[in-house]
Nucleic acid binder design. Sequence first.
DNA 1: TTTAAAAAAGAATATATATACAAAGGTAAT
DNA 2: ATTACCTTTGTATATATATTCTTTTTTAAA
Lengths: 151, 151
Amino acid sequence: MSAKLRRLNRIKELLNNRFISSHENLVKILDAEGIEVTQATLSRDFAELGVIRAITEKGARYILDSHESGKQIAKLIGFEILSVHNNESLIVVRTLAGRAQGIAHFIDRLNSSEILGTVAGDDTVLVIPSSHNHIQNIVSLVKKMMTEHVG
Amino acid sequence: MSAKLRRLNRIKELLNNRFISSHENLVKILDAEGIEVTQATLSRDFAELGVIRAITEKGARYILDSHESGKQIAKLIGFEILSVHNNESLIVVRTLAGRAQGIAHFIDRLNSSEILGTVAGDDTVLVIPSSHNHIQNIVSLVKKMMTEHVG
DNA sequence: TTTAAAAAAGAATATATATACAAAGGTAAT
DNA sequence: ATTACCTTTGTATATATATTCTTTTTTAAA
């Protein structure tokens, strides 16, 4: 993986988990992690990632754009799953932008025989059941996992 | 109604209907309408209204942070869809390389109850229907969207 | 109406972000 | 390895936004 890609991924994580108030703010956080970058580069990265700036009570906050509004996202803390739904053949788990891979990994490790596998995009995880009969069980399982971990 | 309230209402309208790229940009538009205001005041108004700034291909755009505003953002994504097909359980949308995330995002923002979610790779978007019965409707929806926005 | 307090707004400026340009780094073909 | 090209980045700076300080306007009570 290229240095840039690594940086972009880390930026996504930080935007989801911390209150990033300015480019310079993020420059320092990344620097402390050994990722050296200038404000100018972050300006470009933000454009590339589709980052938006919301004005909050605590000043500006940079967040990843997703299907939720800026304010809603800004309020979210920790690794939350937004929803779990299904149709006749699949289960769809919605998460925050950039979180899907992690959630999918977590689901994989449940090692359930009822789950054939998962496919993760950026903010959506597809769970493929080993049989349509297992769909409700899997939905329950994921919802339970969600409450246990979000508390 | 106070002058300030009148201004705030007009600002909301303008943010919804026009591409506002900066405070100064809006200062001029308002001035042309006989509403005199400085950049500093708009800075305060934007904070009060919860305006957010999105970085688009055409530069910054200021939008209201509301559920409606998501649709505004979506309109900004320029894209081309190459094909829309389906089987008994899924819809597959093919796009140009690198465009899938944007298309998926756009489809998400349609906020259709018939769509559970999307998963995007590089040039392919998987659309998961909330029921198999909705597949034809979704195909039509996406095709309509395609002609409206690419035409 | 006068007055005191609060709210709103402007001017100047501090702070923050985007970009032009140059340089460095990477890639593919020869 | 060399060339030509494309991408990425930094530096310096232009552009844009937020804030401090001050003045003006509005509001409410007497």
